[in-house]
Design a protein around this nucleic acid. Sequence first.
DNA 1: CAATAACACTTCAAGCTTAAAAGTTCATGC
DNA 2: GCATGAACTTTTAAGCTTGAAGTGTTATTG
Lengths: 152, 152
Amino acid sequence: MNTPYGLSRRRLRTWIRLLRITRRTENHLREFLRVNYDTTLPRFDVAAALYRAGKPIKMSELSQMLLVSNGNATTVVDRLEKDGFAARKPSENDRRVALVGLTEAGQEWFKDLAAAHEAEISTLFADLGHDNLTVIRDMMRRLEGEPDEQDV
Amino acid sequence: MNTPYGLSRRRLRTWIRLLRITRRTENHLREFLRVNYDTTLPRFDVAAALYRAGKPIKMSELSQMLLVSNGNATTVVDRLEKDGFAARKPSENDRRVALVGLTEAGQEWFKDLAAAHEAEISTLFADLGHDNLTVIRDMMRRLEGEPDEQDV
DNA sequence: CAATAACACTTCAAGCTTAAAAGTTCATGC
DNA sequence: GCATGAACTTTTAAGCTTGAAGTGTTATTG
C-alpha cells in the first residue's frame, strides 16, 4: 500500500515537517548571526525588508511584509534606530505616517550581512539543485494560491 | 532562459518562501487557537509533544523535540501545570531529571484540540493532494538529509 | 574516595511578540 | 464646518524565547 494515511493526516504531517525544517534553519541562522555578527534575526529581517524596498516605507508596510504585528515593528525599528542603522521621518503628505529606511551606515552594515546570509543558506540547502528548487517553488506557489508560472 | 538566477540565489528565495508560508500558517493557527480555544501555539506544541510521547518524558527531551531552549520548556510547562493540564514528577533513577506528562484533564483537553487542529491544517493545505504531498515529503526529506523511502 | 567534569533543570536579564487600548491625523457625509 | 468613523502608529500588559548563570545530581578519574 502506497498511502496508508488519509489526506488530512498527511497534510498534518507535511505541516509538521515544514515547521521542523523552518525552526531548524532559523535556529542555525540565529546562532550564525549572533556569533559572527553580534546581531539578531528580527533585526536582520527588518533590515532586509528595508534594504529590499530601496526607499523609506511606512511602518505598516514593513509589518505586513514581515507578517508581524505593528507593535513588533515599532520596537525592532526602535532598536535599529538606536544602533544608527535605521531612521524614521514623518511623511509630508500624511502626518499619521512614519517612513522608515536604512541609514548609510545601515546599508553598509547590511551589505556584508546579506552576502554572508545568502552563503549560509546556500550551505544549508546544499542538497537542493536546480531541479529540486523548481519542484519546491511550484509546490510553494500552489500553497500560496499563485498560478503556476515559468522562470525563477 | 529557464533559470535566470544562480543556485545560491534560488536557494535563498526558496528559504524566504518557506519562511513566509510557515509564518502565515502559524499566524492563522495562533488566531484559530486563541479565538476558538482560548489557548496559545506554544502550549499546543508542548501538549502535542507530550500526547504523542504517550508517557512522561524528560524536560530536555521535550525541548529537543520542539527545538526550543531548556528555559523555554520550563516556563511553558509551568503554565500548563498551572492550568492543570501537565504534571511533573521526579525520576526515581536520576534525581536530576524531571519527568513531565499530560494529566487526565490535559489529555481530554488536547484530544478535541488535536482534531480541530488537524482539520484546520487540512483546510489550509487543501490545494495539496496525495501526489503533491508525496513530492513535498521527498523534498523535505532531502533537506533533512534523510534517505528516500517509500510510504508516507 | 575526593576532586573534577558532565549533566539536568531552573532562574535571570534582555529581547521578541502579540492583542488590545490609546493617541493622532485624515476622510466622509451631513 | 463638524461630527463620525477610518487609518496609522505607539504604548501597554502579558506571554514567549533565548543565552548564560546558578543549583543540585551523577559520572569520571586520578
